[in-house]
Each structure stands twice: as C-alpha cells, then as structure tokens.
Amino acid sequence: MIVYFTGTGNSRYCAQQLADQLEDTLLDAVPFIRDGIAAELFSEKPWVFAAPTYGWQLPRVFARLIQNGSFAGSRDAYFVMTCGSEIGNAARYNQALCRKKGLRHRGTLPVVMPENYIALFDAPEEAEARKIIAAAQPALERGIGCIRSGRDFPAVKAGLTDKLKSGIVNAAFYRFIVRAKPFTVSDACIRCGKCENACPLGNLRLRDGTPVWGGRCTHCMACICGCPAGAIEYGTASRGKPRYQCPEYEK
C-alpha cells in the first residue's frame, strides 16, 4: 500500500506513479491527519510511505500518523521523500520509526522535485518545474525497481552537516519558523474557499468569507500555493515569488 502526505502535490505525484506501476493501492493520509483518526490498515504488499521533507525529516504530522497507526500484514517499509535538494539524515529517523512499529526499514529514497517552500525559498517558474519533474523520473524508476524486486533502496550517506540538519536544525525549524501568524490575505481574495479545503490539518477557516489561520500549521504551503487569486502572502517573504503546485500524475 502506498500511503502519502502532500501539501502542493509533489509527493502525491510520486505516490500516484508508484501505485500505478506497482499496481498497488493508493491512500491519502490527509483525512486521517485532519480528523485525528488513528489509521488501521492492512497490506500484503510492502508499505510505501511517500511524503515531503520538512527540515530534513518526515513532516511531524506524517511521522505521528505512522507512529500512532496500525500497519498489519507486510513488515517491510519503504520511504520516498520528495525534496528541493536533499534529505539530510532523514533515513536514520525513518529507521528508528520502523523499529518502534515493528517494521523493517527497506530504505529511504530521496526524489528531487520542484521547490515549494516559498516561506524561505523560491519556487521555480512553470517551465523549469516541468524540467525538474522530468529529471526526477530516473530516481522514481530505480525506486520502483527496488520495490518490485524486493531489494532495499540504496543507502543514503549522511555526513556531519546532514546529521546537524536533521537534528538541531530540524528542532529549531519547528520551534522558531513553523507558525501561521505571518500568513495574510489581501483584497484580491475571491472567497472561493479553496484554501480552507486544501489545508491538511484543518487549521484554516473562513470567517465572513475570509481565511483565518489557527495555531495548528505544518507549513505545507497548500493554502498559499493553491490560491487561484494569489491573494495569500507569508509576510514579505513570499512577495513576488511564483506559486507552485504539482500536476496529477498521468500515464
């Protein structure tokens, strides 16, 4: 079973391709996360967890879903992590998570996809994004081959910098950066409600037709990148930057 979490679609794109080529079941984790439901799942095929990289680890909301859920059947677990450049020492934390759940960590595959974290970085223009998605194909194909043949993903070497990124930098990222307060909405808002529907944590509500953010934010960028009117900003950090959403995977 392919279980995925996504904000702007990169991990969904990879998960859809995995499910299609492996002829496996595809499951969106967002309804479980949003409603606080513990997942009780069964799969005869290996578990494949696909998610973006937040602060060089799995998103905490997705890691908690795995930690608190029940995953019966196969004991093999593969992790596919989309990223803007690299995943640091994330594989070590995924391995530890598997030990807690009684799963066998079969490896963590980094897949470089277009950057979406416009709270700090720049997202690519559409043409460049297409090139990056196309360039990710070989990594996905190698991962699919490993899963299909029952082999581990190739080990990801982690140096001191990687360990620091996934360790103290990750902790600082969640403590000082991940917050919803800087989000604002301009008069360009058309009150369509897409931002409310897109929020995977149910952290955003419309008040008199205008989005209002709560305190439960994971910085997935779904609201700001999915706004059809470009009405949402993250302080001054996002001004003038392209928004990015990955298309659905098609055969």
Rank of each mutant, 00 (worst) to 15 (best):
R92V: 11
R92N: 10
Y93C: 08
Y93H: 15
Y93W: 13
Y93A: 15
Q95A: 14
Q95F: 10
Q95N: 14
A96R: 14
L97I: 07
C98V: 05
R99L: 13
R99C: 12
R99A: 15
K100S: 14
R104H: 14
R104N: 15
H105G: 09
H105M: 09
H105W: 15
R106L: 08
R106Q: 13
G107N: 05
G107K: 12
T108G: 01
L109H: 06
P110K: 05
P110H: 06
V112E: 07
M113F: 00
P114I: 04
E115D: 07
E115V: 12
N116I: 03
Y117A: 11
Y117Q: 06
L120R: 02
L120T: 03
L120D: 02
F121H: 07
F121S: 11
D122H: 13
A123Y: 07
A123P: 05
A123E: 00
P124M: 06
P124I: 04
P124E: 08
E125Y: 03
E126M: 03
E126D: 11
E128F: 04
E128Y: 03
A129K: 03
A129P: 03
A129Y: 01
K131E: 15
I133L: 14
I133R: 14
I133T: 05
A135M: 01
A136G: 03
Q137I: 15
P138F: 06
A139V: 10
A139W: 00
L140P: 05
L140E: 00
L140G: 07
E141S: 13
G143Q: 07
I144C: 02
G145Q: 02
G145L: 09
C146V: 01
G150H: 09
G150N: 08
G150W: 04
D152E: 12
D152A: 10
P154D: 02
P154L: 10
A155C: 05
V156R: 00
K157T: 11
K157C: 10
G159Q: 10
G159L: 09
L160C: 06
D162H: 10
D162G: 12
D162T: 01
K163L: 03
L164W: 08
K165H: 13
S166Y: 04
G167E: 00
G167K: 01
I168G: 02
V169N: 08
N170H: 15
N170K: 04
A171N: 10
